Structures are given as C-alpha cells and as structure tokens.
Amino acid sequence: MAPHEELLQKYLDGQCTREEAETLMKWLQSTGSHRALLHSMQQEFERSMHTHAEIPAAISDRIETRLLQDISAGKVVNMRARARRNWMIAASVALLIAAGIYSYRVTRPAGTPPALTAQRTEDVAPGSNKAVLTLANGATVMLDSAGNQVIRQGSTTVLQQNGQLQYDSKPNEGTVGYNTLSVPRGGQFHVVLPDGSKVWLNSASSLKYPTAFTGKERSVVLQGQGYFEVSKNAQQPFLVKVGEMEVQVLGTSFDVMAYSDESSINTTLVEGAVKVAGRVLKPGQQARFDPLTGSFSIRPADVQQVIAWKTGFFEFDNAGLDDIMRQVARWYDIDITYTDKQTDRTYGGRISRSLPLSEILHMLEPNGARFTLEGRKLKVSSTE
C-alpha cells in the first residue's frame, strides 16, 4: 500500500494525527490532478451539505471514481476485488475533505486563484433523460427529464413523469396500435409497458411495442440496449426480438445489448430464466450471438459490469480503448476519430456517467492516450 493510502486508512481508523491530516491535504494539492480532485470534491460536498445530513450515494460514487483513478493512474484497477478497501479509502477522503474545506480556504493566500477553473476550454455535458415517442398514428412527442404530460391514444393513456413513461391500457376497448420509444445518443429513458413490465433504454436505442398486449404472447422489438424487468404471466410469454434473434421470457430481469457497431448481440440474465436460440440461461450467464457468422455461445458474465450503465456508471475490466470510446461516444453524443494506431493497453475501473466528458478523458489519458476535443468531434491519438 502506498504511503498516502496508508494515511487514508489511518484516518478512517481514527488514528491520523493533525499533522498527518495536513500531509494528506498537501498531497491532494501537490499536483494539478490532485488539486483538480480536491476542488471537484469540494464542489460536490458544498452542493450536497445544504440538503443532506449524510453523504449521498451518488456523491460518494463520484468521489470513489476520482480517487481511485487518480491513485491508480496508468493501472488496471480491479474494482470488484478491491471494492471494500477502496470504499473505505474513499470514505476517509470524504470525511477529510468535508472537514478540511474551511481550513483550505483560510490558508490559501489572498489573491490565489482556485485550484481548478476549467480543465478544457471546451467540454461536453453527460447524457440525460430524453427520447422521442412515435405514436400509432405517426405523430411524435418529444420527451425529456423535466416534462410531465398526459398523452391519449384511443383507449390508451400514457403518463410522462420526469424520465419515465407509464401506460394505462384497456385492451378490450378500441384498436391496439404500436408505439416506438427512440432514445438518441446522449440520452436514456424508462418505460412501464401496458402489462407492468419495466424497460430502461440506453443511448442510441429504441423499443417498439403495442399499446396493449392482447394476443397469446407479449412481443416487443429492441434496437440498441435495454434492461428488462418483466411481469410474470405464464399464459402470455414475453418475447424480445432483436434482429434475427429472439429472447423468450416468462418473468425475469435481464439485459440485451444489440448495437450495430458491436461484434455480438449479448443477452445477460440477472434473475429468473430466459431462452435464447433454444438454450435456457441461468442467472449470471450471458448468451452471445454473432450476426455475421451465426455463431452462438453461453458464458459466465459479470452482471454488475453489464448493467452498470443502468445504475449510472461505466464499468470496464481489461477493456480496450476502442471498446470504451464506443460507449463514451453514445453517452456524450460525440464523433470519434483515431489519428494513429491504438495501443494494446487495457483499462479497468468504474467511472460515473454523470461526469462531464473532460473528466472522463482526464482519467483515461495516463494510459497512453491523448485527446483533442473540438465541439463534438474527438480526436484520439497515442502518446507512445
């Protein structure tokens, strides 16, 4: 364990002296990246302390992300194996920063500018709740995180509340139509289907579904990525159609990733049971289908890594830079070009999706990548 990590552990254990605490503060301010970390954490705590008696989970997650990436720059961080110790370290820094904000301000010489004013002259905000709902008659409705409205389609009432759609259908009245919920790059959205099943759509995804499930089966069509929590109904199986593949469900939680720029369509089972290509998956398994070759396989999956997007994170384990950048491009709605051959270095760790793009890039740079951002065009080059 590095000396400063040992000090952090001592602080958590209540054994850190005032002098050692001051040493930690000086270390956090010793380089540009540490000062950026400190300033960013200060801003988060200042915003949260007004309304929260305890540190919110979202804030602590962002602290954990920044701390781990800063301490372990250039390394592949196995977040799961080190989860408890890393959380303890992050918690100790949280307490240290919360307690040290006042002294930091007082001791900073008069006229000295803040540690960080802007990491880049240009930046891109993270994605948000937004989508387009196409109704059965072809009309479109723009949806966002702030909107609250009631949409009526014959016997179907759709309630939009913040980042969610809720359907209330009367299947025995009127004609059943089809709606399509389309989420652009830089967006995400949540829909509760007429049968009560819940679907979370990731960026650059769409879901086509009926306004009421009246037949022998409940069938929807997915493009992109979606996380499903399906209401049980053994008499009316739930089907997710993805290109040439079909996922058969009775009642379960699972993730389907079917982006056109990825090499395979992946179905990952969280709980319950699904059938893909005639094979039944068990919880914790992932089915992979290659549309080009027709090959199919089932393997163990890291479920938390697969569904990290739904809980607000990017999570990687020995991932190549191109794999990471495809996810970044979809969430931040940017176009990426590579100016030279990519390195074979891999990345690991957990990064909050609520951070601005510049912070994501800052965390990736120590591993041999250089980024140039112009508007929404990002050029990636190697430093090696």
Score class of each variant (00 low, 15 high):
360 I>S: 02
46 E>N: 05
273 A>T: 10
299 R>H: 05
342 Q>F: 01
136 A>I: 12
266 N>V: 12
245 M>K: 07
41 M>G: 05
299 R>M: 14
5 E>T: 13
375 G>M: 03
110 A>F: 12
234 A>M: 09
249 V>F: 02
383 T>W: 14
255 D>Y: 04
325 M>H: 14
38 L>W: 15
236 Q>L: 10
304 Q>D: 14
40 S>A: 03
298 I>W: 08
368 G>C: 05
320 G>A: 09
97 I>Q: 05
26 K>I: 03
32 G>W: 00
236 Q>T: 08
154 G>S: 08
119 Q>A: 00
218 R>M: 11
111 G>S: 13
200 W>M: 05
229 E>D: 11
90 A>E: 15
103 S>F: 12
331 W>K: 02
249 V>P: 15
198 K>L: 01
262 E>S: 08
153 Q>V: 07
335 D>S: 13
382 S>L: 04
256 V>T: 08
192 V>F: 10
281 L>F: 08
6 E>C: 01
12 L>S: 08
32 G>T: 08
379 K>T: 10
25 M>Y: 01
254 F>S: 11
14 G>Y: 10
29 Q>A: 08
187 G>L: 01
194 P>T: 04
366 P>W: 11
164 Q>N: 13
259 Y>V: 00
16 C>G: 08
304 Q>I: 07
30 S>P: 07
164 Q>D: 05
148 N>V: 13
323 D>P: 12
107 T>W: 11
341 K>I: 02
383 T>S: 08
207 L>Y: 11
353 R>L: 06
138 G>L: 06
16 C>S: 15
237 P>H: 09
76 V>D: 06
267 T>Q: 04
374 E>H: 11
260 S>H: 10
316 F>S: 02
200 W>G: 01
363 M>A: 15
322 D>I: 10
383 T>I: 03
354 S>M: 06
313 F>G: 04
121 T>N: 13
159 L>D: 00
10 K>N: 11
339 T>M: 05
257 M>F: 08
315 E>P: 00
354 S>P: 04
30 S>W: 10
204 A>L: 03
105 R>I: 00
360 I>T: 03
237 P>V: 12
227 Y>V: 07
87 W>Q: 14
262 E>G: 05
163 G>W: 04
116 L>M: 05
239 L>W: 15
50 H>N: 12
135 L>N: 12
285 Q>I: 12
240 V>Y: 15
180 T>M: 04
231 S>W: 11
204 A>E: 01
208 K>Q: 10
111 G>F: 07
49 M>V: 01
310 K>C: 08
375 G>H: 00
217 E>V: 13
144 D>L: 01
107 T>D: 04
187 G>T: 06
229 E>I: 03
310 K>T: 09
232 K>Q: 14
330 R>S: 02
225 Q>L: 08
272 G>R: 00
65 T>A: 03
83 A>Y: 07
265 I>V: 03
96 L>S: 02
72 S>I: 04
31 T>V: 06
330 R>A: 01
70 D>L: 07
378 L>S: 09
297 S>A: 14
48 S>L: 07
374 E>Q: 07
381 S>V: 01
229 E>P: 14
374 E>G: 07
46 E>S: 06
214 T>K: 15
181 L>G: 00
343 T>H: 05
145 S>R: 14
237 P>M: 13
64 E>A: 14
